[in-house]
């Protein structure tokens, strides 16, 4: 019984540690599904985190803060989309520059924000609240139903993205564009439009993910608040084989690994001790193994989108 109880609490905390990663991963999945590899996730998260916090401090309105964070992330994605879609710039380079830009941007926005506490209204809006009856469900009750609304929103968005990509015609077209833009274009799909919509919505989610850290998890402003979570998200997209539902599991797992690393390093089993740094390594190692495995097996639904990373140029068809 004690074990079940601690497992319950453990899952509850894991969900909180993985929520920002989940949002960012979903954003990156959308972007990659139209064939664009955006390495600016970290930058967009930071832009969202800083502007979200700034808005919360100045307006005291929690929902406006989340909206502003999302729009800021989308703005970062817009820069990326203009350069990679319209100007056919190199996606990898553009993404890396977006991360540098976003980091600098967040530093500028946040220069007078450290040390400021958030309004009670904002804190309580995102505090964990138990839903009666449902939160009593053993094991998963606390994880799902005694949680910040932010955490639950991430879960809902994950399900929505899954439905969107797999069950709607718009989502089907999106995947078509990512697999074979030339064929999609020939069949009358507006490639540019689909790319823009998915990249921008993806950026929005990355921004919202970043703001989870500054508004809920920490909740203060500190420089470089994401601490590499954006890169974890890029890894997780592969680990979850571009599947939003698997991303939930992965985000909680990776989030937890990052969170427990420092606590576990004092635990010793015989001569074997945990090292926080080795634990930190695991997500990336696991991602490489998954990537090798899926490219080796070549099962269509697990492979990266066919045109990932390549610019689409109609006249070169």
């Amino acid at each position: 019984m004690d074990f079940l109880l601690s497992l319950e609490l453990f899952l509850q905390v894991a969900a909180q540690m993985g929520t920002h990663i989940l949002f960012a991963t979903l954003g990156a999945i959308l972007c990659e599904k139209v064939g664009n590899l955006n390495l600016g996730v970290e930058g967009m998260m930071l832009m969202g985190a800083s502007v979200g916090f700034y808005t919360a401090v100045h307006t005291g309105n929690p929902y406006l803060a989340v909206l502003a964070a999302g729009l800021m992330g989308a703005f970062g994605a817009l820069i990326y989309a203009v350069i990679t879609v319209n100007f056919r710039g190199n996606q990898v380079v553009t993404g890396l520059v977006l991360t540098i830009f976003g980091t600098g941007f967040a530093g500028m926005v946040g220069r007078n924000l450290s040390g400021i506490a958030l309004d009670e209204k904002v804190i309580s809006a995102f505090a964990a609240k138990p839903i009666p009856v449902l939160s009593e469900i053993p094991v998963i009750g606390k994880m799902l139903f005694e949680q910040s609304i932010y955490v639950q929103a991430a879960l809902i968005v994950a399900i929505l993205v899954y439905i969107y990509l797999n069950k709607t015609s718009f989502g089907l077209n999106t995947r078509f564009v990512g697999e074979n833009p030339a064929a999609a274009d020939a069949s009358g799909i507006n490639v540019t439009k689909y790319k823009y919509i998915n990249i921008l919505v993806g950026g929005f989610l990355c921004g919202v993910g970043g703001a989870f850290l500054s508004l809920v998890y920490v909740p203060r402003w500190q420089d470089n608040i994401t601490a590499g979570a954006g890169w974890i998200a890029v890894a997780l997209v592969i680990f979850s084989t571009w599947n939003p539902l698997r991303a939930i599991f992965g985000a909680y797992l990776f989030g937890m690994l990052r969170g427990v690393g420092f606590k576990l390093q004092n635990v010793k089993i015989g001569n074997f001790g945990f090292s926080a740094q080795i634990l930190d390594m695991l997500p990336y190692l696991a991602t490489i193994i998954v990537l090798v495995f899926i490219t080796k097996r070549k099962k269509k639904e697990n492979l990266p989108p066919e045109s990932l990373g390549n610019p689409y140029f109609r006249e070169e068809r």
Partner: peptide, 17 residues
């Protein structure tokens, strides 16, 4: 120092485009 990062970012965005 983040101002320098922003400047760096903007310049490269223009060059990329």
């Amino acid at each position: 120092a983040s101002v320098a990062e922003v400047i760096q970012g903007i310049i490269i965005f223009f060059v990329l485009a």
